[in-house]
Nucleic acid binder design. Structure first.
Length: 418
DNA sequence: TGTCCACTGGAAGGGAGGGCTT
DNA sequence: AAGCCCTCCCTTCCAGTGGACA
């Protein structure tokens, strides 16, 4: 008699490459040690230790590209602060009250939101919390000052992606936070700003700029050998012994190092390579799985970009794809526009003007979905030469998932373009 | 050398929508 | 709730452009 099986058995019986917790390979996982960031941790710890002696730590601005460990280092220090506080509670240590507040300015990006979020951390009673909206910003600020100043404490506010805040709503809130120490008698507040964009400082008022950047730190990109160390450490924790070929971490590291030493990308490559190996029932992760992972991540990324395009951009892309399917790979703006207008007519939506479509074409170019170069054809005029940079088949398949344009699938462009 | 083509891309402004303030 | 303000998306207008061609 055969055992009863379900569709999942094949996967359940496959060799286990991962240990139980594959979260270890997610960029959000915080390991016990952060290799090759010892100096940065040391430097920040020394700045922050001022707080433990009752002083106000200098404001710090941290620069570094994505995946250089900025947020990881901050979260590492936040954990250390928490551990220190536990020692205070056990009366092993005697240091002033500290608060470590982490805000991501991609999510909280208005002056009101920042002040409200910080203020509410110090209000225990739910009914007297600062509302999401409705108060004048000045009132929120005054409330924040009075709550912070109730008892002596040192507050460290981390503003991750601070550039987003500045681009979204200027430097008003930074001005408030920079002057808050003048308005408090008992407590002190300092700011750690994190950014991957050096230019945003130019948009700050000179007074805010100098107050904010009392200390500056730059996190350099990891090189291939540093990335390899990071990966090996994580791989040891995440994979079962003997399931990862020698050289796999080196390939991941080398690929990620080509892209400005992004540790996040390196970890993604390793995790996805492991998943591909496990899914195909292989016993070991090999370099080939890493290359497959690279393709998968790139395709997923393109798919995500295309899926989230607004309808009009999707129609423009569809127009380019349809030309491509009919053998025309190099198009002018005029040709794309005519086909786009035809598709708009087909789906029953009003076409935008050609001027606007010029902008949408430039956006698609910036996203890397198409390639558009301005070219002059002499008497034929000056226009953009446009071609798709992604596989027509893949792009169309992704576009067809949009219910608004699904029915375009078998449509053939009416016009003949010479 | 001047003309002409088919746009490009900057500027200004309208209007819808959403958040802030009173 | 209503007014104000800002942002985003879009239109309209238009000067400017590179290069083939007469």
């Amino acid at each position: 008699m055969t055992e009863p099986t379900t569709i999942f058995h094949r996967y359940l019986n496959a060799p286990h490459i991962f240990r139980k917790d594959r979260e270890i390979l997610r960029p959000s996982y915080l390991p016990e040690k952060l290799p090759h960031r010892e100096n940065e941790i040391e430097q920040l710890a020394s700045i922050m230790s001022t707080a433990m002696r009752g002083g106000r730590p200098s404001n710090v601005i941290i620069f570094g590209k994505t995946g250089t460990g900025k947020t990881a280092v901050i979260k590492y220090l936040a954990r250390e602060v928490q551990r220190t506080e536990e020692l205070v509670e056990k009366e092993v240590l005697d240091i002033p009250d500290m608060a470590f507040i982490y805000l991501n300015c991609e999510i909280v990006n208005t002056p009101y939101g920042i002040l409200q979020n910080i203020g509410n951390r110090f209000i225990k009673d739910f009914s007297s919390m600062i509302p999401f909206t409705g108060w004048p910003t000045e009132k929120v600020y005054n409330m924040l000052v009075s709550k912070l100043d109730e008892s002596p404490k040192i507050v460290i506010v981390v503003l991750d992606e601070i550039d987003k805040l500045v681009y979204n709503s200027g430097d008003d809130v930074l001005y408030y936070l920079a002057k808050i120490n003048d308005d408090m008698k008992n407590s002190k507040l300092s700011i750690i700003g994190i950014s991957n964009d050096l230019k945003f400082m130019e948009f700050l008022d000179p007074r805010v700029r100098s107050r904010l950047s009392e200390e500056k730190m730059v996190f350099p990109p990891y090189n291939a050998s540093e990335l390899k160390d990071i990966l090996e450490e994580r791989a040891r924790l995440a994979f079962n012994p003997g399931t990862v070929d020698e050289g796999v971490t080196a390939v991941c590291a080398a690929l990620a190092a080509q892209e400005h030493g992004d540790a996040r990308r390196a970890l993604d490559l390793l995790r996805v390579a492991g998943e591909i190996a496990e899914r195909s029932g292989d016993r070991r992760v090999t370099a080939n799985h890493v290359y497959a992972a690279k393709d998968k991540i790139e395709l997923d990324c393109t798919a995500e970009t295309i899926k989230t395009l607004p309808l009009q951009s999707k129609l423009v892309l569809m127009a380019i794809i349809m030309h491509g399917e009919q053998g025309r790979n190099r198009l002018t703006t005029g040709e794309v526009y005519s086909a786009y207008a035809e598709l708009c007519d087909f789906v029953g939506t009003k076409p935008l003007t050609q001027r606007r479509i010029t902008d949408l074409i430039s956006e698609l170019d910036m996203l890397g979905i198409i390639n558009a170069k301005v070219k002059s054809f002499g008497r034929g005029g000056r226009t953009k030469e446009i071609q798709s940079s992604v596989s027509l088949k893949d792009a169309k398949r992704i576009l067809m998932q949009d219910s608004d344009i699904k029915e375009i699938g078998d449509y053939r462009l009416k016009q003949t373009y010479l």
